[in-house]
């Protein structure tokens, strides 16, 4: 036994600082694949913040953008676990890469005769788009990063939000590289 006194405790994986991560998963477009991903994240104790899914240019391949909070090791573990799914072709953590991130939100804002013009002015300044005008409300479409949409929502909350729906972020890395071309072979 080494003579010196007790060593420091061994570091535990996953005990680091938590931050928002963005994972891009390229998956086979098969029935149940969304269920597999969601089930795995639940079973492994990861909490998904948002999830956006659609097929890619190829009909048999889908792309998921998953945002979640966790420390770097825990999220790496989530990505490795996703990789174990037979239908998952490629998983990439793009958190630290230069990316384009966009999210779309529809917000149904309370708007009366007395404040409608004020609301519309605000929407215009926020680069939102009015897509429906009705007696007592407007529906506004905004796109932007998650925090831009957060800011818009906070701004119009004073008027009263009747309904809010957000797509969750979709993300693409800048530059000419392609995750879909790089799927595991």
């Amino acid at each position: 036994m080494p003579a010196h006194s007790a060593p420091p405790p061994r570091a535990l994986p996953g005990g680091g600082e938590t931050r928002r991560h963005v994972l891009v998963a390229v998956v086979l477009n098969k029935p149940g694949v969304l269920n597999r991903v969601a089930s795995l994240m639940r079973a492994r104790n990861f909490n998904i913040d948002s999830l956006a899914v659609s097929h890619t240019d190829s009909d048999d391949v889908s792309r998921m953008t998953i945002t979640l909070h966790g420390d770097d090791v825990a999220v790496e573990q989530a990505a490795k676990q996703l990789y174990r799914l037979i239908d998952v072709l490629k998983v990439q953590d793009v958190t630290s890469e230069p990316t384009i991130q966009q999210e779309l939100a529809l917000v149904k804002i309370r708007a009366t005769d007395s404040n409608r013009s004020e609301v519309l002015k605000l929407v215009e300044l926020s680069r939102g788009r009015v897509v429906d005008l009705a007696d007592g409300s407007v529906i506004v479409e905004v796109t932007g990063t998650e925090s831009e949409i957060d800011a818009f929502v906070a701004l119009v909350r004073t008027y009263g939000i009747k309904e809010l729906v957000r797509t969750g972020a979709v993300v693409m890395a800048r530059g000419s590289g392609s995750i879909e071309e790089a799927i595991k072979r």
Partner: peptide, 10 residues
Amino acid sequence: DPAEIGKNVA
């Protein structure tokens, strides 16, 4: 299994 590495101990 890559997922086993770093899962329980660093």
